[in-house]
C-alpha cells in the first residue's frame, strides 16, 4: 500500500488529494447542514449506492480498458440479471436463503452466457469497425430492454423480502436498517477486493493488464487474447447481473433501472478515467456520496429530489473540463 502511494505519478497524487478534499467537503457540508445522525445516514446511503454503481461500472471500465468497446448494454445486463433473479427468487419452492443463492447463481450464469454469445458472435467480428461496436451495443441495449418489457410486462416488481439470514435489523445513526444493506456493501467490497486480487495477483490478471497496455504485443507472445477478451466481457456482464440481483430485495425491479445505473456508471468511469480500475472504485464512492448528499440537500431545501440527477452531471462536466481523461486515467 505504501509503495503504491510512493510510486504514484504527480497527476494521480493530485487526483488523490482532490478526491480526499472533495469527500471531506461533502461530509463537512452534510454534517453542518443535516446534523450528525442525518449526515451519517446520508453517507451510509451514498456508500451503498456507490457499491451498486461499482458493480456496473467496473465491468464497463474493464471491458473498455481491454477491448476498447464501450458496452452500452451493461445497463441491460443489470436489468436482465435483476429480472431473472426476481423470477427465480419468486418461483422456486424452497427456503429464502436457498432461493436467494439460486437467484444469484442463475442470474449470473444466464447473463454470463448471454455476454459470451454477444462477445463471440456479435462484437468479435466488429473489432475493425469500432464505431459499429458502440452502435451495436447501444442498439442491443434498446432491443434487450424491449424484450424484457415484452416478457415480464411493464409494471415494476415490488421489492422482495431479503433472504432469511439477513432479515434482521440493526441500528445505525438512530435509524433501523436491514442487514441486507450491510450485505450489499459487503458484496461490493468483496467484488472490489476480489477483482483487484484477480487483476494483480493472478496470471490471468497479468495478461489482462498487459492487454490493456498493448493487446497486440500480448498476442505476439503467444497468448490467446481473444479468449481473454471473452472472459473479461463475461466477467463484466456477470458483475452487472450480480448488482441487478442484489438490487431486487432492496429496490425491486423496474425497467428504468438499467439506464439509470448505466448513466451513473458512465459518470463514474468518466470521472475515474476510462480503463482505470482504481479510478472506477474511487469514483463510484465519490459519485454515490455526491448523489446521496445532493438528494438530501435538495430534499431539505427545495423539496425537489430530481435535482440530485443534475448534481452528478455537473460533477462530470467539471471533471471533464478540468481533466478530460478522468482523474486516474492514462494521460494522452
Amino acid at each position: 500500500m505504501l509503495t503504491y502511494f510512493a510510486n504514484l505519478s504527480p497527476q494521480h497524487r493530485r487526483s488523490w488529494g482532490l478526491v480526499v478534499a472533495y469527500v471531506a467537503l461533502l461530509l463537512a457540508v452534510s454534517y453542518v447542514d443535516f446534523g450528525y445522525n442525518t449526515a451519517g445516514q446520508t453517507a451510509f446511503r451514498g456508500i451503498l449506492l456507490g457499491m451498486l454503481v461499482f458493480m456496473v461500472a467496473s465491468g464497463l471500465s474493464l471491458i473498455f480498458g481491454l477491448l476498447d468497446v464501450l458496452n452500452f448494454a451493461q445497463g441491460a445486463f443489470l436489468l436482465i440479471g435483476a429480472y431473472v433473479g426476481y423470477d427465480v427468487y419468486t418461483s422456486l419452492d424452497a427456503g429464502t436463503t436457498v432461493r436467494f443463492l439460486a437467484a444469484i447463481v442463475s442470474g449470473v450464469v444466464f447473463v454470463g452466457v448471454l455476454g459470451a454469445i454477444m462477445e463471440t458472435g456479435l462484437i468479435r467480428p466488429l473489432y475493425d469497425r469500432p464505431v459499429f461496436q458502440i452502435v451495436l451495443t447501444f442498439g442491443l441495449a434498446a432491443v434487450l430492454l424491449d424484450l424484457v418489457e415484452r416478457y415480464y410486462g411493464p409494471d415494476p416488481k415490488q421489492p422482495l423480502d431479503p433472504p432469511g439470514f439477513l432479515d434482521n435489523n440493526f441500528t445505525l445513526f438512530d435509524q433501523s436498517l436491514s442487514y441486507y444493506r450491510l450485505f450489499i456493501i459487503f458484496l461490493g467490497l468483496t467484488m472490489m477486493v476480489g477483482v483487484f486480487l484477480l487483476l494483480n495477483r493472478t496470471r490471468i490478471g497479468i495478461i489482462i493488464r498487459a492487454g490493456v497496455q498493448d493487446s497486440e504485443m500480448v498476442q505476439a507472445l503467444g497468448i490467446n487474447v481473444r479468449l481473454i477478451f471473452t472472459l473479461v466481457f463475461v466477467l463484466g456482464a456477470a458483475l452487472a447481473a450480480l448488482g441487478g440481483i442484489a438490487l431486487v430485495p432492496y429496490q425491486g425491479a423496474t425497467l428504468e433501472m438499467g439506464n439509470q445505473f448505466l448513466i451513473l456508471a458512465i459518470v463514474v468511469i468518466v470521472i475515474g478515467g476510462m480503463g482505470s480500475y482504481e479510478g472506477t472504485a474511487i469514483a463510484s464512492i465519490v459519485v454515490g456520496l455526491t448523489r446521496a448528499v445532493a438528494e438530501q440537500l435538495s430534499l431539505e431545501h427545495f423539496d425537489a429530489p430530481v435535482l440530485a440527477e443534475t448534481s452528478i452531471l455537473l460533477l462530470m462536466i467539471v471533471v471533464l473540463l478540468v481533466q478530460p481523461s478522468g482523474l486516474f486515467g492514462r494521460e494522452e
Binding site: L70, I134, I263, V270, M274, E309, M316, P324
Partner: peptide, 15 residues
Amino acid sequence: RGIYFAMFTLALAEM
C-alpha cells in the same frame, strides 16, 4: 474524444 462525447450526450438527454 468520440466515446466521451457519446456518453456525455446520453447523460445530458437522460437528465
